[in-house]
């Protein structure tokens, strides 16, 4: 029963050839076969959200998806968030400045959750943001600094997305 399959996954724009059992979750595959250990597993039953990644742009629990299901999809993980030169994404920068993390175990999940949701709707109001951030669990921060950070990042991301006015 432990038959394995050869899969081709696209993660952060890079192609990975992996060989896994069908029962291998996307999270385990990213961590063990792609060497991308930034995606963390906190519960493996879809509640904590530490494993949240983007699949074709949608924020998804990677513990509840099997790798075999996502051939042909675009996967994005926390490792792809910063610029290649190391410049932090506005979300990362805001989490840093607003102390939105302590142990950092939940942080990749929150970053990817916020990234997916803000891409879908850059104009989330505070109430919608709180609903969204309630999707994942953090045991250290008490959440307020995460909310503050995502709010700040959303404002920066919106300003950046707006075309520059003509001089």
């Amino acid at each position: 029963m432990s038959d394995t399959r050869d899969l081709t996954l696209r993660v952060n724009g890079t192609v990975h050839h992996v060989n896994v059992e069908p029962r291998h979750s996307l999270a385990d595959t990213l961590r063990e076969s792609c060497g991308l250990t930034g995606t963390h597993l906190g519960c493996e039953h879809g509640v904590c959200g530490a494993c949240t990644v983007l699949i074709d742009g949608r924020a998804t629990r990677s513990c509840l998806v099997f790798a075999v299901q996502v051939e042909g999809s675009e996967i994005e993980t926390v490792e792809g968030l910063a610029e290649p030169d190391g410049t932090l994404h506005p979300l990362q920068q805001a989490f840093w400045e607003h102390h939105g993390l302590q142990c950092g175990f939940c942080t990749p999940g929150f970053l990817m959750l916020a990234l997916g949701a803000l891409r879908e709707n850059p104009d989330l109001d505070d109430e919608e943001l709180r609903d969204l951030i309630a999707s994942n669990l953090c045991r250290c921060t008490g959440y307020q600094n995460i909310l503050t950070a995502v709010r700040a990042a959303a404002d920066i991301m919106r300003a950046k997305a707006r075309p520059a006015p003509n001089p």
Partner: peptide
Amino acid sequence: VGHIAHYPIRQR
């Protein structure tokens, strides 16, 4: 729909 689990669950 807003009461069904959480945003990432509703995506899938």
